[in-house]
Design a binder for these strands. Structure first.
Length: 286
DNA sequence: GTGTTTGTTATCAA
DNA sequence: CTTGATAACAAACA
């Protein structure tokens, strides 16, 4: 599940590798991932365009091109973006615990560059997408997202205002809402709540001022820590060079249902909250 | 055949 | 406007 730290890791690597490359041929094996153009239209428009930079907004990857166009990419739950350098053997991947060579049967698109390198979009569950859009459409798609938690715009005051505005919402639900804070997903919401010692099931209105401050602080801290470790490879997230992120050993609750809390030894509780697997320590979190 | 995994949007309801 | 519930998308895995 690529969330902010995973997408950020991919983007940093791709920006470094793709900037300056010029697109050549494009192969689409699963047309439904492409919009708003047809795969043919997509390929035609892409040819000859140079990559200016690669950046991120929320969980969306933006490849900015010469001219007016950008490729927007969302990996959703199982998307992978693999960079294949020119004249090298296929990148090795681990998918669902099994070694796999890329490209695989889950490769949905291959965007080639004129120097012989290529970018592959793999997506087991076909939820992810690629859009080739102009600036105006790009901004229309990006605009509805909330504050970027790793920018100076994400102040304690702003976060407190959000908490005060959506009083009836459960904390977890509030944090998962991409229109409020952008980039958090199931993993980092659970982790941030643990670090702030707050139960994800509580409603916003029950938070004290110091709890709100702590939650704000821990959201930032856990995201930064994970980026430093290149993200969480809980399932099939890989970085664009096929390697895995290193944050799993630092997870306190996500994926640890029934295992002892690293702080107090109490078994981690796992419940369903609004249809999401939710993990917490019943003793450390109040 | 069943339940579980989750990001996002749509839809309906209150 | 806020909020809650549910389905839909889609495929693998236990």
């Amino acid at each position: 599940m690529p969330e902010l730290p995973e997408v950020e890791t991919i983007v940093r690597q791709l920006d470094h590798r793709l900037t300056g490359l010029v697109f050549g041929q494009t192969e689409i094996s699963y047309p439904k991932i492409i919009s708003p153009l047809s795969p043919t239209g997509f390929a035609k428009k892409l040819v000859g365009q140079e990559v200016l930079r690669v950046y991120r907004r929320a969980k969306i990857i933006i490849i900015e091109l010469s001219g007016d166009q950008s490729i927007l990419i969302h990996l959703k739950m199982t998307g992978q973006l693999i960079f294949q350098p020119a004249k090298t053997s296929p990148v090795n991947l681990i998918v669902g615990g099994h070694p796999q060579t890329d490209p695989s049967k889950h490769t949905r698109a291959i965007l080639s560059f004129r120097d012989g390198s290529s970018l592959r979009f793999n997506d087991l569950r076909k939820f992810g997408w690629l859009k080739l859009v102009n600036q105006e459409t790009r901004e229309k798609i990006l605009a509805p997202h909330g504050v970027e938690p790793l920018t100076k715009n994400f102040t304690t005051k702003l976060f407190a205002e959000l908490v005060a505005r959506y009083l009836k919402r459960k904390i977890k639900q509030l944090l998962l809402d991409q229109t409020l804070v952008a980039g958090l997903g199931n993993i980092y919401v659970d982790e941030a709540c643990f670090r702030a010692k707050i139960l994800p099931t509580r409603t916003a209105q029950t938070l004290t001022h110091s709890e709100t401050t702590a939650l704000h602080r821990e959201i930032i801290a856990v995201l930064k820590h994970s980026i430093k470790k290149k993200g969480t490879s809980a399932r099939n997230y890989v970085i664009s060079d096929g390697t895995k992120g290193g944050f799993v050993p630092y997870l306190n609750v996500y994926g640890r249902g029934g295992l002892p809390c690293k702080t107090c030894g109490t078994p981690i509780n796992k419940i369903k909250l609004n249809g999401r697997g939710t993990h917490f320590c019943p003793k450390c979190q109040k």
